[in-house]
Measured scan of single mutants.
Amino acid sequence: SEIVVAMYDFQATEAHDLRLERGQEYIILEKNDLHWWRARDKYGSEGYIPSNYVTGKK
Score class of each variant (00 low, 15 high):
residue 1 S to G: 14
residue 1 S to V: 15
residue 1 S to N: 13
residue 2 E to V: 11
residue 2 E to L: 11
residue 3 I to R: 08
residue 3 I to G: 03
residue 3 I to W: 10
residue 4 V to H: 04
residue 5 V to W: 10
residue 5 V to A: 02
residue 6 A to N: 04
residue 6 A to S: 05
residue 7 M to I: 14
residue 7 M to S: 05
residue 7 M to N: 07
residue 8 Y to P: 00
residue 8 Y to S: 07
residue 9 D to R: 03
residue 9 D to V: 05
residue 9 D to S: 10
residue 10 F to R: 12
residue 11 Q to T: 13
residue 11 Q to D: 13
residue 12 A to I: 07
residue 12 A to S: 12
residue 13 T to P: 10
residue 13 T to D: 08
residue 13 T to C: 14
residue 14 E to R: 14
residue 14 E to F: 13
residue 15 A to N: 10
residue 15 A to P: 15
residue 15 A to Y: 09
residue 15 A to M: 11
residue 16 H to N: 13
residue 17 D to H: 15
residue 18 L to T: 01
residue 18 L to H: 02
residue 19 R to M: 11
residue 19 R to I: 09
residue 21 E to Q: 10
residue 21 E to A: 05
residue 21 E to Y: 09
residue 22 R to T: 10
residue 23 G to E: 06
residue 23 G to I: 04
residue 23 G to Y: 06
residue 24 Q to Y: 07
residue 24 Q to G: 09
residue 25 E to M: 10
residue 26 Y to V: 03
residue 26 Y to M: 00
residue 27 I to E: 11
residue 27 I to Q: 09
residue 27 I to P: 01
residue 28 I to P: 00
residue 28 I to G: 00
residue 29 L to F: 04
residue 30 E to I: 08
residue 31 K to N: 07
residue 31 K to E: 02
residue 31 K to L: 04
residue 33 D to K: 07
residue 33 D to Y: 10
residue 34 L to K: 15
residue 34 L to Q: 13
residue 34 L to E: 14
residue 35 H to V: 12
residue 35 H to C: 15
residue 36 W to A: 04
residue 37 W to T: 00
residue 37 W to G: 00
residue 37 W to R: 00
residue 37 W to L: 03
residue 38 R to A: 05
residue 38 R to D: 01
residue 38 R to L: 15
residue 38 R to E: 03
residue 39 A to L: 04
residue 39 A to V: 11
residue 39 A to E: 03
residue 39 A to I: 04
residue 42 K to W: 05
residue 43 Y to P: 00
residue 43 Y to S: 08
residue 43 Y to E: 09
residue 44 G to E: 04
residue 44 G to N: 06
residue 44 G to P: 00
residue 45 S to N: 15
residue 45 S to K: 15
residue 45 S to F: 13
residue 46 E to Q: 06
residue 46 E to I: 10
residue 46 E to M: 05
residue 46 E to Y: 03
residue 47 G to F: 05
residue 47 G to C: 07
residue 47 G to V: 02
residue 48 Y to D: 02
residue 48 Y to F: 13
residue 49 I to Y: 00
residue 49 I to K: 00
residue 49 I to W: 02
residue 50 P to R: 05
residue 50 P to Q: 05
residue 50 P to Y: 04
residue 51 S to L: 05
residue 51 S to M: 07
residue 53 Y to M: 12
residue 53 Y to C: 12
residue 53 Y to V: 05
residue 53 Y to F: 12
residue 54 V to H: 02
residue 54 V to F: 04
residue 55 T to H: 09
residue 55 T to Y: 11
residue 56 G to V: 14
residue 56 G to L: 15
residue 57 K to C: 13
residue 58 K to E: 14
